[in-house]
Design a binder for these strands. Structure first.
Length: 511
RNA sequence: GCUCCGGUCGUCUAGCUGGCCCAGGACGUGAGAUUUUCAUUCUCAAAAUCGCGGGUUCGAAUCCCGCCCGGAGUACCA
């Protein structure tokens, strides 16, 4: 059976897209692209009470930033629309009615309070109430009530839900592409609500109807859906859609870095790494949750890191572009166990991808920072500095602290460095440096010869001592690139000014 | 509680059609080299009694059984 691969990413707009959701979207995307299939964005907003304004736009923007593109969806349309479940509302009722007609579902009139009381009652006996084949007879529904009574309630406009009627004693097997066959007995499954009293379907009904009508071939979703997968399989059977039932793959969970449990919103800002792709301002609380993009992560790095959290190519290659991932992705290599998020590795990925970006691109990321620090520098100069210094950083935000001395003279000198490097007689040596700069052509080799070879080595001076003092004078600390390269970069006049200032400020020290 | 899914270095993982594994790679960590400094880079190292206990087998991380631990689900939420 070969049919066109069509997958969907189906988030609900209840807040920012969690990074685990991003991974799900990514795996769907890789699978679709690899098989020349379609990638669909469907919004599952059947719960009107949980709707959060801005969430849908956030999801679209986040995935776009990461390079996860769709062929169909709320934002671009397509031949299988609408792609927002609330816009599809009118079409679900007929399916619920079909199930009702064919005995696969029944009306239930139990109020929320009645259900609640029932649960409490069971709890008191240390049992758990489940609305299923064993208990439905004692509840108020079209199975327990007379046909006349049911009709009377329906006619009177009494609120009701439609529940799935699980057949008793049936083994239901879900074939999962990652875990193999998972079998459950229907006696343990509850009669899930399919259609709510507000006229909206629940996720369970909507997702089956939509996947079927949208001709979805593979459902790749989080492991939290595995327990309800048997219901979904039964629903396909009840509708008579078994032949075109999609194949399932339930992805392992993303766990928090320490301890156990699912990665949650809280963990991110507590442990210093984002849980969301983009910054999210909660419209209600005003609370800000930070995102990868704003933290300075490159989208390629996030994609690569996420792809490898729960999947591997089977080779030792770790740096994989989106194209590599599309070529090499396969469901067979998705792992079964949950993966803990590792911040250090995320940083490493970002470092690697930063090195691949051109000096020009790094400079473009850096220039806004320079502006914030009130620095006006020539673009070419910034590009040059970035090229020289990018290998030292994991994030663009670290650029300023790594390179500030390229743009402004030090205003103070590290005391520890003074103690260690600035020895007696140093003012004389520094004065000599100025003299050399003033007399020798301002070229790397010439200065190297005059200062290093002739003056320092020629006079049997301590190379490290003199050069590090010069560094201290120019940088203010004992860090930075090759000293003469640094001098060549900031220029003759600036170097002389800084050295002179160091002589004046630090002065001569006692033996 | 019940159901289901998991369990290899600190972390992500390779391996799971049994021998090539006294378990390989990566991140991180440590050491050394390079460098006038810091960082980078390079080299090396430490790091998993393969959750535990039984079996099967000449041989098990890999197969079987039991147990333990963890996670998810258990809503008119998705």
């Amino acid at each position: 059976m070969t049919r066109k691969v069509r997958v969907r990413f189906a988030p609900s707009p209840t807040g920012p897209l969690h990074i685990g959701g991003v991974r799900t979207a990514l795996y769907n995307y890789l699978f679709a692209r690899q098989n020349g299939g379609d990638m669909i964005l469907r919004i599952e907003d059947t719960d009107q009470t949980r709707f959060v304004p801005g969430a849908e736009a956030y999801i679209i923007e986040a995935l776009d930033w990461l390079g996860i593109k769709f062929d169909e969806g709320v934002h671009i349309g397509g031949n299988y629309g609408p792609y927002r479940q609330s816009d599809r509302k009118p079409m679900y009722r007929q399916y619920a009615e079909q199930l009702l007609r064919e005995g696969w579902a029944y009306y239930a009139f139990d109020s929320a309070e009645a259900l609640d009381a029932k649960r409490k009652e069971y709890e008191a006996q240390k049992k758990t109430f489940q609305y299923d084949c064993n208990t439905r007879a004692e509840m108020e529904n079209s199975l327990s009530l007379s046909a006349e009574e049911v009709q009377r309630r329906l006619d009177s406009g009494a609120p009701y839900v439609v529940r799935f009627k699980f057949p008793a004693d049936t083994e239901i097997t879900v074939h999962d592409l990652i875990r193999g066959d998972v079998t459950m007995n229907s006696n343990l499954l509850d009669d899930k609500v399919l259609f709510k009293s507000d006229g909206m379907p629940t996720y369970h009904l909507a997702n089956i109807v939509d996947d079927h009508t949208m001709e979805v071939s593979h459902v790749i979703r989080g492991e939290e859906w595995l327990p309800s997968a048997p219901l979904h399989v039964m629903l396909y059977k009840a509708f008579g859609w078994e032949d075109t039932m999609p194949q399932f793959a339930h992805l392992p969970l993303l766990l928090k870095p320490e301890g156990n449990g699912k990665l949650s919103k809280r963990d991110g800002d507590r442990l210093g790494f984002p849980v969301f792709p983009l910054d999210w301002h909660d419209p209600k609380t005003g609370e800000l949750s930070s995102g990868y993009r704003e933290k300075g992560y490159l989208p390629e790095a996030v994609v690569n890191m996420l792809a490898l959290l729960g999947w591997n190519p089977g080779t030792e290659q770790e740096i994989l572009s989106m194209d590599d991932l599309i070529k090499q992705f396969n469901v067979a290599h998705i792992s079964k166990s949950g993966a803990k998020f590792n911040v250090e590795k995320a940083k490493w990925f970002n470092h690697e991808y930063l090195q691949m970006r051109s000096d020009e691109e790094i400079a473009a990321m850096f220039e806004p920072q320079l502006k914030e620090h009130g620095i006006e520098a020539k673009h070419d100069y910034v590009v040059k500095v970035c090229g020289m210094m990018k290998e030292r950083i994991n994030f663009p935000s670290e650029l300023w602290e790594q390179t500030s001395y390229f743009f402004e003279a030090p205003t103070e000198y590290d005391p520890a460095a003074i103690k260690k490097r600035w020895k007696p007689g140093m003012t004389t040596h520094m004065a000599k440096v100025i003299e050399i700069l003033n007399t020798v052509p301002f070229e790397y080799d010439a200065i190297h010869k005059a200062l290093l070879d002739e003056y320092i080595v020629g006079n049997q001076l301590n190379m490290g001592q003199v050069m590090n003092s010069l560094r201290l004078a120019v940088v203010g600390k004992t860090v930075g690139p090759d000293m003469l390269t640094l001098v060549m970069t900031i220029g003759k006049e600036e170097t002389i000014r800084r050295v002179q200032r160091a002589i004046d400020t630090i002065g001569e020290v006692a033996e």
